[in-house]
Design a protein around this nucleic acid. Structure first.
Length: 199
DNA sequence: TCATTAATTTGGC
DNA sequence: GCCAAATTAATGA
């Protein structure tokens, strides 16, 4: 957990449960809470004029959601949507959370580090994601998600993202994802077993 | 279990 | 890359 749950509770944290595809906050909303995922996963996305979805990031248990908006005065640039069946989130009012950070050194350090970490990942992904080679884009995303996994040996990571989600993250078409992934299997970059991708 | 819906895959342009 | 159609998996009554 990024910040201790008891501490969050002490500062007014309330848990809330969302089911699959329920919206936690929407693009354009004014940020009013710090959100931390107790259980489940959340996607941050944007839907463009053509109704095409771009997934900005996917967040898991223990991570906070768009915490950077608490430090500036802007509206949310993305939607936050639960993508696990059960998604439990603790939320703390903005002002109280800022108070928490002032009164506690360690969480302040951890949150700062988390933001830096994610900004760094964003740089890396942006560069790879602008590659004209679809395989580079996909591999970069897989590497990123695998980085959360303990086991770093080849084919050990079972990709839980659907091909649609991969397409929405990389900005590629679904068909392109499917065809590239198959090529990558031939090139022994990954393995496919009954539709599941192992990287 | 059957019907419906969503996701995946293939092929043509 | 785009679209349509076929196939398969997941979901719910």
């Amino acid at each position: 957990m990024l910040v201790d749950v008891d501490l969050l509770t002490f500062y007014g944290g309330i848990t809330e449960t969302f089911s699959h595809s329920e919206v936690i906050f929407e693009e354009g909303d004014a940020p009013r809470f710090y959100y931390q995922i107790i259980n489940g996963s959340v996607k941050l996305n944007h839907v463009d004029d053509d109704a095409k979805e771009l997934i900005q990031s996917i967040l898991y248990k223990g991570q906070s959601v768009c915490e950077l908006l608490l430090f500036i005065d802007e509206k949310y640039p993305v939607n936050a949507v639960a993508i696990s069946q059960e998604c439990t989130i603790i939320k703390v009012p903005k002002s109280r959370f800022l108070m928490l950070l002032e009164e506690h050194q360690q969480p302040a350090i951890d949150v700062r580090r988390f933001i830096a970490e994610r900004l760094y990942q964003k740089f890396v992904m942006m560069q790879n994601n602008s590659s004209k080679h679809s395989q580079v884009r996909i591999k970069s995303i897989l590497t990123y998600f695998k980085s959360f996994s303990e086991d770093q040996s080849p084919y050990s990571y079972e990709v839980e993202l659907t091909r649609q989600q991969l397409a929405a993250i990389t900005g590629l078409r679904i068909e392109t994802v499917i065809r590239s992934v198959k090529k990558m299997e031939k090139e022994k970059i990954l393995k496919i077993e009954n539709r599941k991708i192992y990287f």
